[in-house]
Design a protein around this nucleic acid. Sequence first.
DNA 1: CATGACCAAAGTGCATACACTTCATGCCAC
DNA 2: GTGGCATGAAGTGTATGCACTTTGGTCATG
Lengths: 233, 233
Amino acid sequence: MTARRNSATGDRMTAICQGIRRAIIEGALLPGDRLPEDALGESFGVSRTIARHALGQLAAEGLVDLRRNRIATVAAPTPADARDIFDIRVALERQVVQHLAGNLTPDQVAELKDIVAQEHAARHGPDGASIRLATEFHIRLAQMTGKPILVRYVTEICYRAGLSLSSLARPHSSECAISEHLALIELIARGPADKAAQMMADHLEAVAARALLSGDRGRSRDLVNILQPYAKG
Amino acid sequence: MTARRNSATGDRMTAICQGIRRAIIEGALLPGDRLPEDALGESFGVSRTIARHALGQLAAEGLVDLRRNRIATVAAPTPADARDIFDIRVALERQVVQHLAGNLTPDQVAELKDIVAQEHAARHGPDGASIRLATEFHIRLAQMTGKPILVRYVTEICYRAGLSLSSLARPHSSECAISEHLALIELIARGPADKAAQMMADHLEAVAARALLSGDRGRSRDLVNILQPYAKG
DNA sequence: CATGACCAAAGTGCATACACTTCATGCCAC
DNA sequence: GTGGCATGAAGTGTATGCACTTTGGTCATG
């Protein structure tokens, strides 16, 4: 029916991972939310085996907390974790920009601008969409380096950063990132590499700086309803 | 007997992962070597379920190649992959040194020197031991930052680097790293952070530079005998 | 001698079953 | 009431079984 993906192992597991990742990054799932294997399996129409395997992957990515004999939960990064995550993110995305500066094709510039346009369109919509698109911008940027391992790490750290933001940041704090993304595209396309890398670092620092408040939100939420939109992929 | 770690899920899976990681980093397992689930399970005395889960983790770390319906194999990094891995490694370990410079306790200095002493003692032993100890040096360094996420990434990238070296480097190429490690300790303990970070970067570049030859070694090897020493932990 | 179809062996994909652990609830002694 | 213990429900840990896929070899055929 739909296109077949076979990234690593079975693609049903990949689908679950993607679904949960999206739910996490959009803030639909919040740190501490429980992810029981059976409920997950039921949501996605697979057995516990696969749900369990998916949770293992997500735990390896740091998005899920997995303790023996305990129900898996969405990871709850501490402010210190968030700080570390952004430090690492700066280091990695600096590399992305270094490799990319001056080498973007017009097509790539257009694609990036398109993502920013979507960000602009979504800026008054649900908060999660903004974060997702902003994240997508950074991930696409990494993909354009054509370095698969760098892509992997940037992707992972971006998701972790998104999780950190969703728990620690106040709403709409990522809004002003749009103009910064536009400026980034320009500087990466034309400017000197060092300058572009520095701008990326500043941009990320700014995003991190805007999220200092530690806001707790509600607990004990309804997994089935939350995940329903993400089960279709 | 030894202290028990329950990092993520059951510790039997962790044991398998550790065993295979060690086997890989010491060069006992080479890129392309097959890792069938049953054989693995039998080697470590567990069922396929757990072996499979372990393979999933290792695949997430990039040490194992997992393709649908195919036997898992030890990952085979290309020279380009190796280059990317070392670039990322430099970026991450720079951060480690930045955080550590000037803050090492005497105990920590002593512990690091002890590892280097072990490296010295093992410099004429089996080639794998040298690489393992060198890797341990870098990982311990990262752990001393007390930043768990940084530790995670440094550890992972060190293992990937070790795998790259085991397939691409010529034997004993890591020998001269010993004196560099000693100098690093000194500079991290006393020197200015920037200088220490630069030295770390130079050190890693040197290690990478010493491994340019693409040497293919034998294929189709005996898994059971290879893994036997690693099954006990 | 090369080539392609077929077949069995080996291996993976996945679900299910069962033992064990954790957790929440209620009960009882105080 | 209140603290502590028993108990069952919920959930995880792991092994096993079966269907499907891949693979390598064999044999007939050109």
